[in-house]
Lab assay of single mutants.
Amino acid sequence: MAAAAAAGAGPEMVRGQVFDVGPRYTNLSYIGEGAYGMVCSAYDNVNKVRVAIKKISPFEHQTYCQRTLREIKILLRFRHENIIGINDIIRAPTIEQMKDVYIVQDLMETDLYKLLKTQHLSNDHICYFLYQILRGLKYIHSANVLHRDLKPSNLLLNTTCDLKICDFGLARVADPDHDHTGFLTEYVATRWYRAPEIMLNSKGYTKSIDIWSVGCILAEMLSNRPIFPGKHYLDQLNHILGILGSPSQEDLNCIINLKARNYLLSLPHKNKVPWNRLFPNADSKALDLLDKMLTFNPHKRIEVEQALAHPYLEQYYDPSDEPIAEAPFKFDMELDDLPKEKLKELIFEETARFQPGYRS
């Protein structure tokens, strides 16, 4: 834990890192770190609560700039109880001085990944967590956004079992017609939660990839272990087919990539493993919904509104309290091709509203 900075004593240090967030945020305490930044909790002297502050230093890398800009653009436009918001952003007053960006968010005690390492969940908890994931996802999908990296560590939890989806750095506007060349190379989302079509096709992607990830998360809540822990690309596919069985001819016809289709045709026939054999203690309604989410063919996979209306979630289902976005989200430009200098300018502009004396 960093010592509390005395008023006016300059930035606090946390594990050798400068955290320049005073005077409003003090009493910093280390939480963890990701690929390009550290997260601390801090005391907000204005709202009198502890908050989470993520320090991001992305400006050396085009990919990190892209992810940072995506996350900020999306989260500043989203407003939903099951999606983490941005409360404040701290950065230098000029673009030349801006080396880091500090993002202030609600402090959540833990995440689903940490929880599943230590606790076996009751059916009631599984049901409530799944409902909140789908409630947040309904809003995301209504904005025409794909999260693309749903996994237990991106689901934040607090002691009252509130759940918030975080990390929109890989999110995209849904565009089933656009052929994202190089899709697989830039697709760094965790393999275990990846839909089979991501490994088999490169053309376009749809909201059904997020539903697949939610199915993987439900299976993990039922058993405290990942359902498809593939060691590499082909191993991942083999794990999936080992449980779902061989795809039907109709399902194979959806695979545009001939090499991928021929690979699947070359494999020995596998039978589907019954879900109640894998999860003998699970609620039968939970397994019915799991089956509809972990469907090989993305066109037959359940959609988020149908999933919310499934009998497993009937005690929570309330369409009048499951809000959607006001308007579909649009990125003005494809960020993939922009140089990091341009992305830095866009991050600077996007964060201006939090600067003292800002006038829109």
Rank of each mutant, 00 (worst) to 15 (best):
I83E: 09
R191T: 03
A2E: 15
T190Q: 03
A352P: 12
I256M: 07
Y102L: 09
N224I: 00
Y139S: 05
K272W: 07
T190M: 05
N45S: 08
L343I: 12
S208K: 12
L115M: 07
D332Y: 00
A6E: 11
E345V: 01
Q105L: 03
L121G: 07
V214Q: 01
Y139T: 11
L313Y: 09
L155C: 11
K259P: 05
K117G: 07
G215S: 02
G182Y: 06
N47V: 08
L335K: 13
T181G: 05
P328K: 10
L130H: 05
T118K: 04
P274V: 13
V214W: 03
R148Q: 00
T94D: 14
L287Q: 01
L308N: 10
A5W: 07
G245Y: 05
M199C: 06
Y30T: 13
D235A: 05
D235E: 00
Y64F: 01
N262Q: 07
E350T: 15
F168Q: 03
Q62K: 00
E305R: 10
T351V: 10
R79W: 10
L155N: 10
P247G: 13
L222D: 02
R359Q: 12
P196H: 00
G136I: 07
E349S: 15
V273C: 07
L313I: 13
L278C: 09
N201V: 09
G22T: 10
Q119C: 12
Q355V: 12
L278P: 12
Y25L: 06
K164F: 07
Y193F: 01
G245A: 03
A307I: 15
L278I: 14
L241P: 03
L265K: 12
N144G: 06
D179S: 12
A7V: 12
Q119K: 07
G242P: 03
Y316F: 00
I74C: 07
P280F: 07
I74Q: 08
T351G: 11
H61T: 08
Q105E: 09
C65F: 02
G242V: 05
S41T: 05
L134G: 02
H120V: 11
D167E: 03
H299D: 08
I165G: 03
A195P: 03
D177I: 05
A52C: 04
Y205L: 02
N123F: 10
D149G: 03
I95T: 11
H310Y: 06
W192P: 01
M13Y: 07
L28K: 10
G169W: 08
Q249N: 14
N45H: 12
M199E: 05
F228H: 09
T206H: 02
Y193G: 01
N271F: 14
V188A: 02
I217M: 09
L150S: 04
V145I: 10
L146F: 14
K344N: 00
I74E: 04
Y36L: 05
M38K: 00
R359A: 07
I240R: 04
N276T: 13
Y263P: 09
Q249T: 13
M221P: 02
D321M: 12
Q306E: 12
I347T: 10
E12T: 14
V214N: 01
F59L: 00
N238A: 10
D251R: 03
L184Y: 04
N201D: 08
S284C: 10
D124L: 09
L343A: 06
P274M: 07
G8M: 15
I165S: 09
C216E: 01
N154F: 03
T159Q: 04
W275P: 03
K231Q: 06
A52S: 01
I140A: 06
N238R: 08
H180E: 03
T351M: 14
L343H: 07
D100L: 12
R277Y: 12
N297E: 10
V304P: 12
L289M: 03
F279Y: 02
D106F: 15
Y25P: 03
F129M: 10
D88M: 15
D337L: 10
S153H: 11
G245V: 01
Y139M: 07
G37S: 01
V101I: 08
P11Q: 01
G16P: 07
V173T: 05
T68C: 15
N45M: 15
L76Q: 01
L278V: 12
I256G: 12
D111A: 00
N154A: 03
P229I: 04
F329G: 14
S213R: 00
Y30S: 07
I53N: 01
A174E: 02
Y139P: 07
I347H: 08
L338I: 08
G242Y: 11
S153K: 03
N201S: 06
L137I: 12
D332A: 06
N224W: 08
L146Q: 01
K231D: 12
L267E: 10
D291E: 04
V214L: 04
D210I: 04
T185H: 04
D336M: 11
L200P: 03
L218T: 05
I126K: 10
M98Y: 10
Q315D: 11
I133W: 05
N45R: 12
P11M: 02
L150G: 05
P311G: 13
E350A: 15
F329K: 13
S246T: 14
P93F: 15
D162T: 14
E96W: 14
H120M: 08
G169F: 07
K164S: 09
L265D: 09
L130F: 10
A9P: 12
I347D: 02
L264A: 12
P58G: 15
R70A: 05
L28G: 10
H80V: 12
L343S: 09
L112D: 04
I198N: 00
Q62V: 07
Y316T: 14
W212K: 03
A3R: 03
N158L: 03
C254S: 00
Y312K: 03
V173D: 06
A3V: 05
K270E: 06
M333C: 13
T185L: 04
I74K: 05
E220Y: 06
C166W: 08
Y43D: 11
W212E: 01
S266H: 12
I53S: 06
N253P: 10
H310N: 00
D106K: 14
D100K: 13
Q119E: 11
N123Y: 00
Q105C: 11
G22K: 10
L265I: 13
L163T: 10
P339H: 10
K340I: 11
A7C: 08
G204P: 02
A260D: 02
W212V: 01
P23W: 15
Q306I: 15
G85D: 03
L146K: 08
L290I: 12
P319D: 10
A307V: 08
T118I: 08
G245R: 02
A4L: 05
I95Q: 11
I198G: 08
N45W: 13
G10S: 11
Q249L: 01
M13R: 03
E109M: 10
N271Y: 02
I302M: 11
I227F: 00
H141A: 11
N238P: 02
L116S: 11
K340A: 09
T68Y: 10
E220V: 01
L346F: 15
L218W: 05
K164H: 05
K99T: 04
P247N: 09
Y312R: 02
A327Q: 10
F279S: 01
C166R: 01
P319N: 12
L155Q: 00
P323M: 13
R172G: 02
M38F: 11
D332W: 14
L134K: 04
S360L: 01
R301D: 04
I56V: 05
M98K: 01
P23M: 14
A42K: 12
D20K: 13
L343E: 04
R261A: 07
T295N: 04
P268W: 06
A260W: 06
N297V: 08
L75E: 13
S29L: 04
L241M: 00
D283A: 06
E60C: 15
H125G: 02
Y233C: 03
L76A: 13
L338A: 08
K259V: 06
D283M: 14
E197G: 02
L28V: 12
A260L: 11
L346H: 09
L134T: 07
N238G: 11
N224E: 08
L338M: 01
C216W: 05
G215T: 02
P280R: 08
G10K: 08
F354K: 07
K73H: 06
V39L: 01
V304N: 13
Q119Y: 09
V18E: 10
N201W: 07
N276I: 00
L289C: 06
M13W: 11
R191V: 03
K114M: 05
Q355G: 11
I72A: 13
L346Q: 01
I243V: 09
A325F: 15
Y205A: 05
Q249V: 08
A7H: 10
N154K: 01
H299K: 07
L112T: 11
E12H: 09
D100M: 14
E81L: 11
I83C: 14
N27I: 00
M293A: 10
P319R: 10
A7W: 11
S266V: 13
H310R: 04
A171S: 01
P11V: 05
P58C: 14
G230D: 00
W212L: 00
H178P: 04
N123C: 08
K344S: 10
Y263Q: 08
R70H: 02
F183P: 05
F348M: 05
E322D: 07
A6H: 13
S360C: 09
Y205G: 03
R261G: 05
